[in-house]
Design a protein around this nucleic acid. Structure first.
Lengths: 199, 199
DNA sequence: TAACATATGTTAGCGATGTTAACTTAGGCA
DNA sequence: TGCCTAAGTTAACATCGCTAACATATGTTA
């Protein structure tokens, strides 16, 4: 992991710093990471990162962006595992989201936690919208309506809220991990089944 | 605000520190607060807080605990504004939660954000459970079942997830504040109407 | 009232952190 | 070959959290 060439020039410092930061975030919690420690892990002086990143913040953003990619891919794959229109797609989407949060709780917290206003960072905003679009699409199929339908976005958003809220409540110990869970029924109830008369 | 007696002994440092911290959290974001700055605001040396709190963390916990009380009271009041069984109670509960988050976004983020595992701090865990109990009770009334019913807690939890998720997504700019919102229909759909055959 | 114990301040200082400035080295290109 | 630039280094600064040692009010008790 801490592969170290003897060269003065490290060669892949940027990538290794990101890896170190991701590791530290998982290990010591979202706030427990320091640039200095990441430097030590990469075997480099504490000033080195500033050749690659402007800020501590910019390092975090890079970590987040990469994680957003992975998460989006996981969600897409989960949905694609079922045929279009299958209600199971919705459940799979939620499961993928939650699985990601559970497998990388620290990174998840950094991604969606406070202090990184996605709206102010174009790359993050874009990536976030792309992920939401996946949800909207699946919901639209399920409801048999088009993606632009207001009711579709509203329900997709409600679904996202529920899943997202669950992740945060569990990860931070606000809800008892073992006893409580969001049921998959809830997703479907939220989205509303197209089988029921749509009012 | 920065009332300053000439006395050597400040007299109400503890309270003023908490107030300063709350102010700083709102002003500079959840992570942007430093004990040192709060000290400056209270007109006191940077070592003074440690006569009242063990840690920076303990200061935060005090802020959180106080905020939890206020939030719980607001929720209770909101529900009580409607007669038992009125579906509007559920909506009011959600609205109170969201209103709190909007009025004190920084504090809200600290309360529920990562890094404070409520499960590990008895006082916080207790306060959190009390708030959840309010939701469960209202949902139970609405469904015409008892609070211990698993289905009741499951639906109450799903409701909490949705509202909580919405707050986080909006506050941190993950969702477009102006365009998107969770509809109040969604709450009711989530909880499930007791008017429908309960399966 | 005098003496003391305690609570609550202060100053000084440590080690860690984020960041910058000035210097050094290696690698690629004219 | 010689030089430009990218990517490291060391040294230094301000800030921060926190501790230790000291100082001063306050209230209790003789």
């Amino acid at each position: 992991m801490t592969k170290k060439k003897n060269n003065y020039h490290h060669g892949e410092l940027r990538a290794q710093l990101l890896e170190a930061v991701r590791y530290l975030i998982e290990e010591k919690g979202p706030d427990g990471f320091s640039v200095a420690e990441a430097c030590r892990m990469a075997g480099v002086s504490t000033a080195a990162p500033y050749k690659h990143f402007k800020d501590r913040e910019e390092i975090l953003h890079a970590v987040i962006l990469e994680a957003m990619h992975r998460m989006g891919a996981a969600m897409q794959a989960a949905a694609d595992a079922y045929p279009a229109g299958d209600p199971e797609r919705i459940v799979a989407l939620g499961r993928a989201y939650i699985d990601f949060a559970k497998s990388e709780p620290g990174v998840f917290a950094v991604m969606f936690g406070s202090g990184n206003n996605h709206a102010e960072i174009p790359a993050l905003a874009e990536e976030g919208q792309a992920k939401f679009a996946i949800v909207v699409k699946v919901v639209a199929e399920h409801m048999n309506r088009c993606m632009e339908d207001d009711e579709v976005t509203a329900r997709a958003y409600a679904l996202w809220c529920a899943v997202h809220g669950h992740c945060f409540l569990v990860l931070d110990g606000k809800a008892d991990k073992t006893k409580i869970n969001i049921t998959e029924d809830a997703y479907l109830r939220l989205v509303g089944s197209s089988y029921l008369p749509p009012k």
